[in-house]
């Protein structure tokens, strides 16, 4: 598992990486994508009332929970990690940028 190999993240840099998500997401309201509040520890596809894809709902029902490892994989390649997801976004390919992004999200979504 890549878990141990994840670089340390910098939340301040991560806030700027999160700019890339702001066409579709916000921390505290559903937009084209679901809200990110309380993301860590949340089951995938579980924000009440959000119209998820069948693929995302199924991933959650099959036990996918968002944490450092699963978010790292999803954000790297959303449509590869969850084929059929409605998040039509190629992903953040740089491991350091992902670590920064997750450090920011961890702070901002509590």
């Amino acid at each position: 598992m890549a878990a141990m190999g994840l670089p340390a993240g910098d939340a301040a840099r991560g806030e700027h990486i999160y700019d890339r998500c702001l066409a579709c997401h916000a921390i505290d309201r559903d937009r084209t994508g679901p809200r990110h509040a309380k993301l860590f520890g949340r089951r995938a596809g579980s924000v009440p009332g959000f119209p998820y894809s069948a693929a995302m709902k199924r991933a959650g029902e099959a036990g996918l929970v968002w944490n450092d490892q699963t978010l790292d994989k999803f954000v790297e390649n959303p449509t590869g990690f969850i084929p059929g997801t409605r998040m039509g976004y190629a992903g953040v390919k740089d491991p350091q940028e992902r670590a920064d992004l997750l450090a920011y999200l961890k702070q901002a979504t509590q």
């Binding site: 998500c21 702001l22 066409a23 579709c24 992903g91």
Partner: peptide
């Protein structure tokens, strides 16, 4: 400006797919 910047990123992320 934030929305437009985000939109640029979103299309950039869509193009390869």
């Amino acid at each position: 400006a934030t929305l437009e910047k985000g939109a640029v990123s979103a299309y950039l992320g869509a193009i390869p797919l």
